[in-house]
Write a protein that binds this DNA or RNA. Sequence first.
DNA 1: GTAGGGTTAG
Length: 734
Amino acid sequence: MPQFSSHLSSAVLGVSNILHLQQFHAQLIQHALHRHDYWVARLIAFCTRFHAPSDYTRIFDSTHQPGVMVFTNMLRYYSKCGGNSEILTLFEEMQRCGLKPDECVYPVLIKAAGKGGVLFHSQFVKMGLDCGKYIRNALINAYGKYGPIEAGRQLFDEMTERSVADWNAIILGYWNWGSEGEAKRLFDLMPDKNVITWTTMVSGYSKMKDLENARSYFDRMPEKSVVSWNALLSGYAQNGFSEEALSLFNEMVSTGVTPDETTLVSVISSCSSCGGPALAESVVNTLGDRGVRLNLFVKTTLLDLYAKCGRLEMAQKIFNELGVHRSSVTWNSMISAYMRTGDITAARELFDQMPEKNVVSWNSMIAGYAQNGRSSLAIELFKEMIKEQIMPDEVTMASVISACGHLGALELGNWVVNFINAHHLKLSLSGLNSLIFMYSRCGSMNEAKMIFNEMETRDVVSHNALITGFAAHGNGVEALKLLEKMKDEGIKPDRITYIGVLTACSHSGMLEEGRKVFESIKAPDIDHYACIVDLLGRVGKLDEAKRVIKEMPVSPHVEVYGSLLNACRIHKRVDLGEFAANKLFELEPENAGNYILLSNMYASARKWKEVDRIRELMKTRGLMKTTDGAGWKLKRKMQAAGYIADKSNVLRDVEDEDKEEMVGTHSEKLAVAFCLLVSEPGTVIRVVKNLRICWDCHTAIKMISKLEKREIIVRDNNRFHHFKDNVCSCNDYW
DNA sequence: GTAGGGTTAG
């Protein structure tokens, strides 16, 4: 140390926060030493330690001729508190000043270079330089982060003396590459573990969702730091254990540990499912009083919390206040906020304005479109993404496959599957679930079953997707088998499972089995009642159906009466049909379908007067214009044949589509949906029994065959219609 | 003076 006043030398030892730092800086100015290399370097080191805001770095600008030490500490500051671009700029400046990087600079550079950091290694070897211990540690870290981890291990093994930091680096590396076993082996072998070693284990188990082990290492730690608490806290928060996270936070506070910004992020994000904005606000306020600042992470988390709790105006407020400081996560969170409320226009505007989109931005938009019933927009955006050469990931794929399923676009779906294979992408659990859904939706039950059987782990959604597929295809036996199988595997059926199984029973006329399933439901909800009413109705047990409706603990909704009405039509029970229809007229006076159904029922009972009465009723209620005959006829026929559930999502989706989304008239849309639903390339389209291809359908299929350039064969009773190149072999309808 | 913890999308 240079010869300075002993007063300063002892004063520097007492600097332990930013305020001290400012006071000390003032003292240096008094002694005219504030531009001296040694002291500037020390000041910058303090800035790094206290995470001082970047305007403190003016200290650096005030030096006349910064030496290596000042540059190095400044680089360290940027490495911890700033960005990598500043590091590279500063490094270039350093070289311009004719200063040679030394052993202390390289570790910073290796870290800043990211993936390229490991290139330094070969450089050193080529130059015949011996890597010092800090450089070697930085290299092990780089290999641990970007691979190959084996290269890091080799470095580690070759070392004659290993520091705690080296052990920690290699253990972390193994966790990064998912090698729990090797990480644990080295941990057990390690002679002197410190708090970082233990925290690495806690965080490793947290990240692989093994919270029991994370907790057990946490409890066994000889000492804990804030980071240790945060590691476990984030493990709970990110895996949906919000209550555990909040109670751990309480434990943390009562132990006397001072939480920091990172703590806040986990706590606030847990509040979105537990406690809500009020709890988050009170935590923010109490910690704010203790001097915890709200950084960008915290503000973004808060924004997300408000958005998830329906307080869009607060989310928007934070978004506006952040201005240019917004990160891409902030943007993405706001996009999802709008998508959640169904405001796809506002979401799109943000997406277009966003300065730097990442894959999550694209995923948020694609998923948002898909969830708002705009599957074709989702797929359009996906195609745009490919065109822009943005690499989709497993999340993109899950949404896109699901959108294909909703559209019944099997060919596109198969293209996506090929894309996944070609780019060696892995499908996540939800991606595979989407795939089962898509195949089921497109009528490819064999493929759906194959995917299901090949899955390593299956959850309740996987089972539901397949069961719903069986239901749509009237395969009650398989649906029931799967219900039993999932129970055996310890997967608890949920309400969707039971809707699927009951629908399957209904579509295959399995009365007794359906009854048994219904009775086994602990707390049947209104949809389950609708299913059992449908089942009873279809097999002709109409009075029993009516009794069930009467005894329902909740007031029946449209689906319940709709099922009953449909059953009355099939079984020609005009009396009960009138009862159901009148209820429906009360519940949804605007739905012309109910009137049509009742009118058809009268027609089949040859009660022509009543038919006219209903027609008049519709006219006076102004409902005639929405009932362009062919479309409804098609829908009714499909319903009558039991091929598609009464409230099939396909039909609903098509009806919900905006006009711009599909070409053709309303009835053609129905036809298109129908065709896409049952078609599969290379197979003959099965047309539901008694359904003749009407003119609309004919047009629509021609359109599909032209657009998709595919050959479609449709069997209509005993005739075959062969569609190819905009021509149909059987043109009776023209 | 090397090492551990954080927000968004299915």
